[in-house]
Design a binder for these strands. Structure first.
Length: 819
RNA sequence: GCCCAUGUGGCGGAAUUGGUAGACGCAGCAGACUCAAAAUCUGCCGUUCGCAAGGGCGUGAAGGUUCGAUUCCUUUCGUGGGCACCA
């Protein structure tokens, strides 16, 4: 809050630096005349009211307040996450949700866009992870230009990456939330626009995203003027244009952009072709390789080259300017919730005042109820004594999860420090996190926030590095099998409350596939319960079916335990009614990531109790590659458990007790050992833990077969195995009578001489078919191999005296003879 | 719809990164030990034709490059993760 992003130095500086600057030189343009409301001189700054000064500073702070849209649920009296909105209604209760502007805190991550991009060059993340972050930041180069509006002094600013297509603009689309909408809409179109705005307000972000095929929009009645040829361009609004990106307005070029094309076709807007035969009238062609036509001063130019020409002209004529845009937006940093760090901010006459250092930390107060506060504020707003401060009112929002997750690793370096989050000496000593293990689901959330946070701390000289994680390993997600119930809501039934009943998976699937229409669904309800049905006016009824996650522990296979369901969530579904099948309610299922919010978690304690932590640990590694997602399934854990028991039996016998001995190892045994050392070394280095576990299994199987109980071999195997099965190895180590702990034991040294093979049998293939095996010494050169092959009796017989076209010898693999 | 990942036996997965597909484990089948069970051990285990020896077909689907493709390229379908329809 007390920092701002300096655009000259490209880093965070204390806000006091900015205040000083304003006091000495104000905020004046580098060249050209100052614009009222944007620029001011030092003298003007000094006479601004305190409130006005703070408002100006707020626009530069790294943590700042602004108005943003949230999902508002009137019935629940609270703000909902996208996740909590399904089919446009709240997941809990099925109440309507709409967009609402509310004051929110943000972190100015957009200021760091370039540095977040650049920093990716210096960290070891997987390419796909870097790609995801780059796409999220979404840097694009283009031009912003102004179109005059017919019979109005107003202008509409659009951002485009394709200024070369300026003569192909057939309409302009504003985001429905755009401030110009109400100013330019003509009287004739007003009703229709209002209707459309109401519709958009009811749509969740998810819906606006998922239903792209459904084309919606509305004409404002106003026209813009193409600055180059004076052509009249109708101005529309449509939900596919987002208020938050660019200028919230686009110029549509239907012959070059498929979405614009579909929009034009749908609303019968004539299409101008500027790319000649590259446009076939059937679909848009986003090429940059066409020669421009119907394009005024750009005629005859290749589109690629025309971009620069257009840009130059746009700037020369003062129509607009080149601009770099990012698709990333500032990160919302407040939540209307209880659980989160409270903001150390007091509001006084509309000014945000941070608490003094002595007053920190500000702790979350105890509440009796977690219900939302008035006007959609968080639960803290309900505690009058807490909210009221001597000099104003406390901020009642709390911080989101990433306020903690972004920098917790620093606290681990100095956890008992009461003065600061982490002493600079400690963070310098430990430096960056060497290896960070996390799932890909954090690609554009946590990992980006954490990188931002670290950069800010670095700028403020609080830590000595600006990337938190040196190397990132993406472990796959363990997936769980989720269960769903399907909430059927019958709307327009005459009463305010929609009628709710739960239908089973079969009904839902049929309805979704269009095999069952509303009337048939209602018929089913009727067949089941006349009483429910009689209250419904079938003619008017509309239905909506929403899948809802239920706790897997309440479901036996796919059959819902109805009594448990009714008691669930403090009796939220106490009065639930069901449309059953043969007395059973059958749930739907889906494999998705295991997560509390999806109620599909399993408890590992039972397995640990039965098999021990070593087995559980090794089994998780054995499941598959760390990076791969895999569904959780315990069948197979027996195998790992058997392996550990087998290991135990190399040391102990049920009857004889201790059976390990001090005999000298044979070459065969040493071969097994050193092969294992090599494999484990490689696999551990490559994080290939599943194959490492396999290698241990092979090793123990082979040693068992040889009845090898020799300490010389066994203790080295134990040391290799420590990170995989720490408990059992420690125990067996002490049984061997060794002093100290196994962790102090030297790591086994690989002796290559036990890996050397003297000769090898190679498969010999003639024209791709494997014919025989021949034995060759290792380390032969291509010429030696050819000679040996040609002298081979069997090969000579196949060749029948004709020389082969080619002999391919792949080292240590096979020999291929092409006839 | 967009971005990222992924697809191999009944199942989890392996394949030295272009060189004998199915290591290791689970499940299954047969056998040994046992009064019996558990535990343990041995053998079989992609599919198909065949008594067998030995063939044919097989890495989501369709093409392509190559002497040779699970691996590289194009198209396409399915699944998982993320999302802010990004002009």
């Amino acid at each position: 809050f007390n920092s701002y992003f300096c655009n000259t130095e490209k880093k965070a500086l204390p806000i006091s630096t900015l205040v000083e600057k304003y006091e000495t030189s104000g905020a004046m343009p580098k060249n050209g005349a100052p614009v009222a409301g944007v620029h001011f001189s030092a003298e003007e700054w000094k006479v601004f009211s305190k409130k006005k000064q703070e408002d100006i500073l707020m626009k530069r702070r790294l943590a700042f307040c602004a108005y943003g849209e949230v999902n508002w649920c009137e019935a629940l009296g609270t703000v909902l996450a996208n996740d909590e909105v399904v089919n446009g209604v709240s997941e809990r209760g099925g109440f309507p949700v709409e967009k609402k502007k509310m004051r929110q805190w943000y972190l100015r991550i957009t200021a760091y866009a370039d540095r977040l991009l650049e920093g990716l060059e210096r960290v070891e993340y997987s390419e796909s992870m870097k790609e995801m972050q780059r796409n999220w930041i979404g840097k694009s180069e283009g031009a912003e230009m102004a179109f005059s509006i017919e019979s109005s002094a107003l202008k509409v600013h659009v951002y485009t990456t394709r200024p070369d297509t300026i003569f192909g603009v057939d309409f302009i689309v504003l985001a429905p939330e755009h401030e110009l909408v109400e100013k330019i809409t003509t009287a004739l179109q007003k009703d229709e626009i209002d209707k459309y705005l109401t519709y958009v307000k009811s749509r969740s972000d998810r819906e606006r995203m998922a239903e792209v095929k459904q084309i919606t929009g509305c004409f404002t009645g106003a026209y813009a003027i193409n600055p180059f040829d004076g052509k009249q361009i109708p101005i529309w609004i449509a939900e596919y244009v987002l208020a938050g990106y660019g200028t919230g307005a686009i110029m549509a070029v239907p012959c070059g952009d498929q979405r614009d094309y579909l929009f034009a076709k749908h609303f019968n807007i004539p299409i101008t072709n500027i790319i000649g035969s590259h446009y076939n009238g059937e679909e848009a062609n986003p090429t940059k390789d066409a020669i421009l036509e119907n394009s005024g001063f750009l005629n005859g130019l290749l589109m690629k080259d025309a971009i620069a020409v257009a840009n130059q002209k746009i700037e020369a004529e003062g129509i607009g300017k080149r601009k770099i845009n990012y698709r990333m937006r500032d990160a919302g940093f407040s939540r209307q919730r209880y659980w989160g760090e409270p903001f150390p901010i007091i509001w006084s006459d509309g000014i945000a005042i941070p608490l003094d250092a002595e007053e920190l930390p500000l702790e979350l107060p105890h509440v009796d109820k977690y219900g939302p506060g008035p006007e959609g504020e968080g639960p803290l707003a309900n505690i009058k004594e807490w909210v009221t401060a001597p000099n104003g009112m406390r901020e009642t929002s709390t911080m989101p999860g990433y306020a903690g997750s972004s920098w917790y690793f620093l606290r681990y370096m100095d956890p008992h420090n009461t003065e600061t989050f982490c002493d600079r000496k400690a963070s310098d000593y430990w430096n960056q996190v060497d290896l960070y293990i996390g799932g890909t689901e954090h690609a554009v959330g946590h990992l980006l926030y954490s990188r931002l946070w670290t950069k800010v701390l670095y700028d403020l000289d609080l830590i000595g590095y600006d990337e938190p994680y040196k190397k990132l390993l993406n472990q796959g997600m363990i997936q769980g099998s989720s269960r769903f119930v399907y909430r059927l809501m019958i709307l327009n039934v005459g009463s305010d409350e929609p009628k709710t009943i739960f239908v089973s998976q079969v009904t839902y699937e049929k309805w979704r596939a269009g095999e069952l229409d509303s009337l048939h669904v209602l018929d089913q309800v009727k067949a089941l319960d006349e009483a429910i049905f009689s209250a419904i006016n079938v003619e008017q009824a509309e239905i909506m079916i929403t899948p809802i996650h239920v706790d897997v522990n309440m479901v036996d296979g796919f059959e819902l335990d109805i009594e448990a369901f009714k008691k669930w969530r403090n009796g939220e579904y106490e009065k639930a009614e069901f449309l059953m099948e043969e007395g059973k309610y059958i749930c739907g299922s889906e494999v998705e990531k295991m997560s509390k919010s999806k109620y599909n978690t399993v408890n590992p304690d039972i397995l640990v109790e039965r098999y021990g932590a070593d087995t559980f640990r090794m089994y998780e590694m054995f499941l598959g590659p760390v990076e791969a997602s895999k569904p959780w399934d315990t069948k197979g854990i027996e195998g790992v458990h058997r392996f550990l028991r087998k290991l135990w039996r190399l040391f102990n016998d049920e009857i004889k007790g201790k059976i390990w001995n001090g005999n000298k190892a044979t070459d065969a045994e040493l071969k097994i050992l050193h092969r294992t050392i090599k494999k484990i070394e490689q696999d551990t280095e490559n994080f290939s833990f599943n194959t490492a576990v396999s290698a241990f299994m092979v090793c123990i199987n082979e040693l068992s077969e040889l009845k090898c109980h020799k300490k010389e071999i066994l203790e080295q195997v134990l040391v290799l195995l420590v990170p995989y099965a720490p408990h059992i190895t420690e125990e067996l180590w002490s049984q061997l009578g060794n002093a100290g702990t196994i962790l102090d034991a030297p790591y086994p040294q690989l002796d290559e001489k036990y890996l050397v093979e003297t000769s090898k049998e190679y498969p010999l293939s003639i024209n791709g078919k494997v014919r025989t095996n021949i034995i060759l010494a290792l380390d032969l050169q291509q010429a030696d191999v050819e000679k040996a092959v040609l002298q081979n009796e069997i090969v000579q017989k196949w060749l029948e005296g004709k020389p082969p076209k080619k002999i391919i010898y792949v080292k240590n693999k096979m020999i291929n003879v092409v006839i």
